[in-house]
Design a protein around this nucleic acid. Structure first.
Lengths: 237, 237
DNA sequence: TAGTGGTCTAGACCACGCC
DNA sequence: GCGTGGTCTAGACCACTAG
């Protein structure tokens, strides 16, 4: 069964965006041009573009055209995106543990019932700072070894998610969060340079992607005293 | 300028759902039936239903029909919905302050720059419990006095959001969150029955609605030790 | 005025669920 | 087999933006 035409058109455009052959703010080919290029009707092209709009890749401007937008703005801060896109300026990232293949399971928070066992996964750990003040510890698990290439790859612009998009065509399609306020353990407190027992925001995240077999698990510990965590949601993509 | 036909069809269906003339799990009229009822083509009807799907009201099942779904499931837990929909069972709500019209501004968190001053707003405060354990304090502001009727209205099924939907056709279309882990003040600690200084999750929320002049502001304080806060996001409505 | 996206028609055929 | 939603065609006219 061949793929639908609108999916083919959407994939074509999505790849142009992922490879940044059309950059943020630049316009896609017009609907009529895409019609003739793919020999389809405008309905089909519009369907493809509606899909990309829903995914947050583009926005349409009547009378002007369709433009690539910054995807983060349509997806929210910590909702489904990483950190380097989240805070505008003066963000530093310290890699506490470079990506390695480990032989144990990811944390159990999300590993109940629905998911099989993974005998190995890729793990890395980072410390995020704003203006040289540590604000977040980020532990990441990528179950399975499908993406072992990641071990040898430098992150595109320092961004994990951008690397997944550009190099592997993996896009985040959803996320589940569990939020807790906890007292900082001695280890967490030391890394975040705060007194032991201070309140920290603990977020467990499960990201789902367009590849059904690929998920990403994260455990975040945030010092919110100066930089609270933001999140936003909108139906009007 | 008359409204588009697909908007008229969508409004017709949305109202049926809001009034629960079609209940959760029940099927809408088929696309073809709506075509003849409104004298439009299937394209137009499908457009209307795509809109409702995006808003989270319905889901389509190929070969069967289109069904009303529980909207909360498409919008996430604390993302854009209230509490009584969020936790399945054993939830009690204690009204600490019944809705009143107060003459002061809502809290300043969201009142920066973009928004005008409100000389009055509706305020109410609730304590949410699970299995008789207090888990969340909820302070709510509804700027302006447009909805003064609310003061005399009992909440539909005890739900504030359902009341807005059923009685006022107000639907949540988005939300902004600011999350902080804080130490419980004596007042908060007393209400949540936890020691002073315990970590509490403080969430400031701004809800936007389909009526541009109506927003809702909330300040939530959660004891997450037993009942953490959940949140989820998905592109695949 | 030319080009873009927004709405809409009147068909067609396919894939799926159910009886 | 029948009814449902899913995909697609080949047009049409409108609303908006920009040169």
């Amino acid at each position: 069964m061949a793929e639908s035409k609108y999916i083919i058109v959407a994939e074509f455009l999505r790849e142009l965006i992922q490879k940044e052959e059309i950059k943020v703010g630049e316009y896609l080919p017009s609907e009529n041009e895409l019609c003739s290029r793919f020999s389809v009707t405008r309905t089909t092209v519009r369907r493809a573009m509606d899909q990309l709009m829903k995914e947050g890749f583009i926005e349409k401007l009547q009378g002007r055209g369709s433009r690539v937008r910054e995807r983060r703005k349509s997806l929210g801060l910590l909702t489904v995106k990483g950190f380097s896109e989240a805070v505008g300026s003066n963000v530093q990232t310290e890699m506490l543990q470079k990506p390695v293949l480990i032989k144990s399971n990811p944390p159990l928070t999300w590993m109940n019932g629905d998911s099989k066992d993974y005998d190995e996964c890729i793990y890395f750990e980072r410390l995020r700072k704003v203006n040289d003040i540590p604000v977040m510890i980020e532990k990441n698990w990528l179950p399975g070894s499908t993406l072992a290439e990641l071990l040898d790859t430098d992150f595109v612009d320092g961004s994990f998610f951008r690397t997944l998009s550009r190099n592997f065509k993996i896009e985040i399609t959803g996320s589940d969060h569990i939020l807790k306020a906890e007292s900082a353990s001695s280890k967490i407190a030391a890394l975040l340079q705060m007194p032991v027992g201070s309140p920290v925001l603990h977020i467990s995240v499960k990201f789902s992607t367009n590849k059904t077999d690929i998920i990403i698990l994260s455990e975040l510990y945030c010092n919110t005293s100066q930089y609270p965590v933001g999140n936003n949601y909108s139906l009007n993509h």
